[in-house]
């Protein structure tokens, strides 16, 4: 392993920028993601910084089943995130559509149709600790030795 890769690994393990996008949920999961910011869970002690800018994000949290406006825009947001990147589905909605995947709905789940999802956190809504745990366990898998893993 090159020395450059080692430095990159160290830096990446302690600096994860998270961006979240709500593609049509009841915003219950939204506020649970926000609750991770609270000093009780203290997401920043793990070096995770939550903000909402896809251009400098590493992890994209996708919340909600996909509404008509997001069908084309979700892919755009995914393309704007620089490599290496990972998308995590939060809640039941991006996985299956939850209660919205029924007759008469305007949504078109799942999110996997639009962007690749690396991890899923089921729950309606999942607890902040579960969200935190998912980010912490999936990020190292993708970011460690990223350049060497490239073909």
């Amino acid at each position: 392993m090159s020395i450059l890769q080692k430095i990159k690994n160290t830096v990446r393990s302690r600096s994860i920028h998270v961006s979240y996008v709500d593609v049509g949920s009841c915003n219950g999961c939204d506020i649970e993601v926000l609750a991770c910011l609270a000093p009780r869970y203290d997401i920043e002690q793990y070096g995770i910084y939550v903000h909402n800018n896809p251009r400098e994000a590493d992890v994209l949290l996708v919340i909600g089943s996909v509404t008509p406006q997001w069908v084309d825009k979700l892919r755009d947001i995914w393309d704007k995130i620089p490599e290496p990147k990972v998308a995590v589905a939060i809640g039941n909605c991006p996985i299956s559509g939850c209660v919205y995947a029924r007759r008469g709905t305007l949504t078109s789940p799942p999110v996997e149709k639009y962007i690749p999802i690396a991890a899923q956190v089921p729950g309606c809504p999942p607890r902040p600790t579960e969200i935190l745990n998912a980010i912490l366990s999936v990020a190292p898998l993708i970011f460690k030795d990223y350049e060497e893993k490239q073909p």
Partner: peptide
């Protein structure tokens, strides 16, 4: 990549 996007909103407005 698109920098300006305006979508046709008529169907969504009708849904409302």
């Amino acid at each position: 990549m698109k920098y300006l996007y305006e979508k046709d909103l008529r169907q969504m407005k009708y849904n409302i």
